[in-house]
Structures are given as C-alpha cells and as structure tokens.
Design a protein around this nucleic acid. Structure first.
Lengths: 209, 209
DNA sequence: CGAAGTATTGAGACGTCTCAAAATTAGTGG
DNA sequence: CCACTAATTTTGAGACGTCTCAATACTTCG
C-alpha cells in the first residue's frame, strides 16, 4: 500500500507497502529503524524520499494547525502494535532515474498507488457520509479482513488512533464499541493494544452495508 | 487527475485527467459523448475501462445503499457547468499491454495517480476533521485556485454537488455561503450553475488554515 | 503499592441535519 | 415577452448525533 505519511499537509512523501519489494532494485536505499512512537519524518526531507515498511506497523496522518489529526491508513506488516518499525528509505530522485530503466517497477508502483487510491476513496465515503457506529463497524470489518480468520482479531492500536482514522473522538469510539458489546456483536479481551476482538459479523455487516 | 467514477463502491474504474493525453498512444480507444446528467458508467463494464475527459466536466462519486452520496473530485476541462462531456474510453487490458512497451506512459499514469492521491488525502482531513464553514471555505479556495485569476470565479455546480463533495447537506452549504456574504468575504451574482463569486480571500484563508 | 497513562461512562453544549416554508431562478408554451 | 410551473436555493425551527468536559475505572509500569 501507498500513502502519505505527513505531519504537514503541504509536504507529500510516499510510503510504500506490501506489493513492492525494492530491496533488489537498482536504487540507492538505506534501512532505518524507528522505535515505537517515533516520527519517521523530520529526519529527512519528506518530499524527497519514498518509504517502505519492512517490519512493524505505521500510521500515516495529516495535521491541522490546531492539532486536529486525520489518519489516512494503517500499514501493518506484523501482528504487532504500532510498534518498533524498520523502514527503507529510497531517494525519490533515484527512483525516477530507475523508472526509466525498469518499467516493471514503475508498473508495480502504479498498481500500489492505484490500490491505495481505491482504499482512500472508500474512506472518503465513510468520513463524509457514515455515522459513528457505521464507521466503527467498517473499521472492525476492515481489520478483520486483514488479520486472523473467522472473526478473531487483535486490535493493535489505541482508541486515539482509531478515532483519528475514523474522524471521531475517542469517547465516541468507546461508546460504539460498548454498544456493540451490549448487542452481542463482539466481545473484547486482552491487554491494551493487543485486545482480542471476537466478532459476530452479522450485526456489523448489516451496519456496514 | 485520476479518480474513481463509481456508482458502486465495489467497482473500480479510473478516470484520467489533464496530465496525460492518450490520443496518440498505441491503445485501442474510442470517444464517447455524454450529455449533461448522463451516467457514464453502466454503459460499459466499468472496471475494464479507463476514462479520459476530453471536454466538459465530470464528477466522480460513490453511493451508499440508501442513497447517501460522496463526491470524490470534480474534473473540469472547460469553464462550463457539469455539462455535455466527451470522454475517451481506453480498454484497461489494452493499456496494460502498452505499458510494457511505453514506459513513459506508465510514468505519466503514475504521476497522475500520485497527484490524485494527494488531493484525496487532503480531502480526508477535510471530511474527517474540519467544520462546515472550513469545508466551504476550502472548497471556494480550491476552485479559485483552478480558475480565473484574482478571486473572481464561476461555480459550475449545484449546491447538491458541493454538499456531496464536502460531506454536508445543501442547507448547511447555503448557510455557510450566506454567512460569508454577511461577513463580506464574498459576493455572489449570476445565474444558477454559473454563479460568479468574488472572493475576499483574507477571511476564507484564515478559516482554511 | 503508587503513579501515569488509557479507556469508559455520564451530563450538557454545540453543530449539523431534518423537515417545512418561503424566495428565487429556470424552463415551457402561449 | 409574459404567465405558469418546476426546480433550486435560502431561511427558519426543532431534533438528533457527536463533541466537550469531567469523573471514574482500569491497565501498565516503575
């Protein structure tokens, strides 16, 4: 998957994901490790680099001047929490040079970007036109689709991350989850950031139509 | 610009835009004309084609089962309203064949997709975290940036289109515009769908920070 | 065990939506 | 060009949902 990973809406770096593997490509790249909670940007000129997550999990977000935050996507490469992460840095300039000699890679990049675009456009509909409960239901089903089979999954992020992904407050997310539990749509167990959710998808799917 | 143009969130066609010109490319393409209000899709299998607007203006949107709509982007190639439009159809399959022989075109597509992704990700922030007035202000400034110089512009779409673009109701859009007029941020004149807006960007820019 | 961080719950405030009516504009046929 | 009708926009009043602020509960970590 592909996305911005920004603190400033005006800067436009890119984050590479699962589809492409640039490790053998003829680009000048370097790996960097970031521990949990570290800002990946601010350390290199964002717009000049492309990032690929090798291990860990990353969230990409944008900020408004007053701190309001919107997460665009979660990127997960292990079952871990938003945790220690290794990232490969690729100079954009270098990439564009390679693009001329490696058409397959460009095609791969195009596929990734297109997939990401589809995800983000679905997210527009969610943010623009769905209620709080519909958003939380959609989020749970999205996570469920990516993870373990059969409605059992871990939620490796905080309520704040979920809220900022769904354009809600943490209180509203919490209330929605509580309501779903009361209705028998899910059960929660386990420690923070590794909560186990047992889904009864029937109810949620109806909400998420 | 690049975007989905959907009635069904599950189908994923692509709409090409200003950057690329496929008319001379070695792809099998055909032009189609659509009059105002026509659904471009439903007439060919959406997922199998890529679309490029040649003349006119197009909006792309997604729908929920109950009719709630979210517009992802406006695409404008004349100053006209969402009006009669000519579209070039390119078979996706054909495009992928060409991609192997025409790396420049793939790079062009990648650029377009990346640009579109940036636009959509900014829109996520708007839909997730900005108030109604901030959204309307951002919309006006976005349109202003694309059109005539110096704060004079035509608004070639209905309140419903604007509302669905901003994730609001038509009433809320109307109230925001009225409030801006009362504050002296803008003046409106002219007929429906060709309203002339005279901006005083100072106030709006502050709102749109 | 204590402290800090995170999540849940409650009560009220606020903003947007819904529904309804009035005003304005567009389109049509005489 | 005018009258009439349909469509769109504006405005108003109240309903509803989410946010804000505050208190409590729970978890993690020292």
């Amino acid at each position: 998957m592909f996305t911005n990973l920004n603190t400033d809406p005006r800067k436009k770096p890119r984050l590479l994901g699962e589809l492409g593997d640039l490790s053998h490509a003829k680009v000048s790249s370097g790996e960097c490790k970031y521990s949990k909670g570290t800002e990946i940007f601010g350390q290199a000129e964002p717009a000049d680099y492309i990032y690929q997550v090798i291990e860990g999990a990353v969230r990409s977000h944008k900020l408004l001047y007053d701190g309001r935050r919107q997460i665009g996507a979660f990127h997960r490469f292990t079952a871990e929490a938003i945790a220690d992460t290794t990232v490969r840095l690729v100079k954009r300039q270098s990439l564009e040079r390679v693009a001329k000699t490696d058409p397959a890679m460009v095609r791969s990049l195009l596929t990734m970007t297109t997939d990401n675009l589809q995800h983000v456009e679905n997210h527009l509909l969610l943010l623009g036109r769905q209620t709080a409960r519909e958003r939380v239901a959609a989020f749970l089903l999205e996570m469920n689709g990516r993870l373990t089979a059969a409605g059992v999954m871990a939620l490796p992020m905080t309520r704040r991350d979920i809220a900022d992904y769904l354009g809600l407050t943490i209180e509203t997310v919490s209330r929605a989850l509580s309501a779903f539990q009361r209705k028998g749509y899910l059960k929660v167990a386990g420690p923070y950031h590794r909560e186990i959710i047992v889904l009864n998808p029937a109810g949620l799917t109806e909400l998420d139509r």
